[in-house]
Design a protein around this nucleic acid. Structure first.
Length: 224
DNA sequence: GACTGATCATAT
DNA sequence: ATATGATCAGTC
């Protein structure tokens, strides 16, 4: 722990170094970690939903900010914090990326953002019961993961099914019930938000922005 | 208790 | 408005 503050902001040189730094955080309470990197722990979670993710990003030296790329572009690794209970079970689904509602001609699984983002993920479990304070949560054992061929097949099948609705302009038929491990849900400031899309005749329309999410049943399996 | 639809903050 | 970081809260 005494080395954490000296490591913050410093981007890791390689994968092993990143994993070692992540592993060194195991068991650390978020209030302790925040103090070591000079951050104040927010009282309420509701209006600071992404705080743990930003705390870990800063600690491990991720620097992509809000840019549309992996957190460690030079390592090809995406960083994801995931809230889990004390048994390691995810409390929430995991946001992957925004779903493209237009300009999808020629887009395939191979060239999709979902595949790219999930190619290599460093999962950082954040342990604590739902509703408990940030300060009381702690960091679990990190996992550097890439999808197995079976997992990738599942992801591709879901992605293709879900993208069909988008490409064919059947947005109204989309619900979070579809997709075994990958689902589409709103990803917006609120339900009035709108972005460009197309209807079933190929005409431009405005629609609620959607995002791809991993179901918690799937992330539970890969963390186990 | 699990799950879907809705929502919060910040940077560009 | 779109990208990043996600969790909330009412319903099933």
């Amino acid at each position: 722990m005494n080395q954490l503050s000296s490591l913050s902001h410093v981007s890791p040189d390689n994968e092993l170094q990143l994993c070692q730094r992540a592993g060194a955080l195991t068991g650390c309470r978020l209030d302790t970690l925040a103090a070591s990197v000079g951050l104040v722990v927010p009282q309420s979670i509701g209006n600071t939903k992404g705080w743990a993710g930003l705390l870990i990003e800063q600690t491990l030296g991720a620097s992509s900010g809000s840019k549309p790329q992996q957190d460690f572009p030079h390592l090809g690794i995406e960083l994801k914090t995931i809230p889990v209970d004390e048994r390691g079970k995810p409390l929430e689904s995991t946001f992957v990326c925004v779903a493209p509602l237009i300009g999808n001609s020629g887009l395939t699984w191979s060239t999709s953002l979902v595949k790219h983002k999930l190619q290599r993920v460093l999962w950082i479990p954040i342990v604590g019961q739902r509703g408990c304070l940030w300060a009381e949560r702690w960091i679990g054992v990190p996992l550097l993961w890439s999808p197995s061929s079976q997992q990738e097949q599942q992801l591709q099948a879901d992605w293709e099914e879900l993208m069909d609705y988008i490409v064919l302009g059947n947005l109204a038929q989309i619900s979070a019930y579809q997709g075994e491990i990958l689902q589409l849900r709103p990803k917006a400031a609120n339900s009035r938000a709108r972005t460009s899309a197309v209807d079933d005749k190929g005409r431009p329309i405005s629609a609620l922005p959607l995002g791809f999410y991993l179901r918690s049943a799937f992330t539970a399996q890969l963390l186990a």
